[in-house]
Design a protein around this nucleic acid. Sequence first.
RNA 1: GCCCCCGUCGUCUAGCGGCCUAGGACACUGCCCUCUCAAGGCGGAGAUCGUGGGUUCGAAACCCAUCGGGGGUACCA
Length: 481
Amino acid sequence: MRFRAAPAPSGELHVGNVRTFLFNWLCARHVGGVFILRIEDTDRARFTEEAYLSALEDLRWIGLDWDEGPEIGGTFGPYRQSERAEMHRNAGMRLLEMGAAYRCFCTAVELDERRKQAMSEGRKPGYDSRCDQLTESQIAANMQNDLQWTVRFRVPKQGSLTFDDLVVGSVTVDHSQIDDFVILRSDGSPLYQLGVVVDDAEMQITHVVRGDDHLSNVPKQILLHQALGAEPPIFAHVPQVFGPDRKPLSKRHGSTSIGEFRNGGYLPEALFNYLVLLGWGTAADTILTRADLVRLFDIEHVHASPAMFDFKKLDWMNGEYIRMLDDEEISRGIEPWLARAKLVGVPATEEQREMISKIAPLIRSRIKKLDESVHYARPFFEEVAIEQVAFEKVMREPHVLELLDRATEALGSAEIWDASHIEEALRAIQTAMDLKPKTAFMPFYVAVEGSTVGAPVFDAMAILGKQTTLDRIAIARSLLV
RNA sequence: GCCCCCGUCGUCUAGCGGCCUAGGACACUGCCCUCUCAAGGCGGAGAUCGUGGGUUCGAAACCCAUCGGGGGUACCA
């Protein structure tokens, strides 16, 4: 079985589209079939080379590998549609010669006027097939006069067409609902409908899994396949992804492109997992690895109804995946974010890396997205700038001065500098002063980490070292008097 | 307008005629744990399965209608 993903890279790859690519990939891997990547770059006005390159990068980032396609080739290439225009045109002309299509001399303006006219009179706005009535001599005359013409596919006027969609089920469309549609523009270039069909046929695609905005194209495409003497593929149309307002997910809802999620501190395996669960699920688990998904995924159980994108659930899931990372992976993962915040160099020095690996286990369970690591890591790389609100709320308490003084003395004379000894020393003070743990320790968070939220403070002190810790306490104390 | 598709807790889903007084997850919330924040553990609230008719001994599941939503109706993809 052969599946394909066909992105049209005009900007950044949209998560909704990527989800359908994921479905294709999963189908192919599930049955041990072939996954093909084909770039639909026919729309020269919108396509950019930059978008194309970043699309490939995004696909690889989220873990999609293709068996045939750009950069790796394959027996059915080329895999960029723009390089196949000749093939499409030939197919279109063949259809014309066979009599399955005909020349249309109506101009775009005429068509437009008639459409508006029909609409205002409440009639069906479609093409009326008038050029199909042209006689041989009329056509010859038009050609003689150098009139521009397009090629239109002739759709049967009677009967209907039924097909079985793997997701949607049985769909029936009356032929009368489909107009004779253009397959070749007046400049000879192919239109989308022709292009996909020729490519799917040539590449021997057996299953077309795509967004349901293409559902109404199916009858046209089946007709084209048949006219071309090819077996139509099996279709599966998955619904779109919606935003919280039940409208198709778009920019105004927040991040929508793969690049934005990557730059937002998300892990590819988490996004992968989440996207597949949008419109599909199992009774048992929600956290499913790539291998689990390959084993379990079943396109026929994908919902035919649209799913809303839930950013909060994605965040939770990302946190789950972060917690599954080992220290080494966490360290590698957060380094770019620390670099971006200018806490470490690019690349980080050995010394910085050592520090990162020390704080990584402290950070792991506290963040949902990698970029949040910056807050927890900052005090380990920079002088502390105490948050104003934290200072006002915590350091103004009457016991703080004495607390800091006692701590300075106890920690100053500490023989062994590790988290448990630090804790022991500070707990002794807490008990002596008869304070609740929280009240006793909070000032140290503020003094040492600059915030009421941070890595566990005894560990932080241990990592920062005795001198730095005492210095920071001294600075905080100086702010009190 | 016409055509096609869709409709289970706020959200993602399980469900494929009796196991459903509808299960799980996110979010929300109570308690526990606790040096902050998290994480974790144990509970709670939340869906008469869009609505109205049928079919059936029995329906969330099948049929019809209705309402609501989405898509298409291009010399866009």
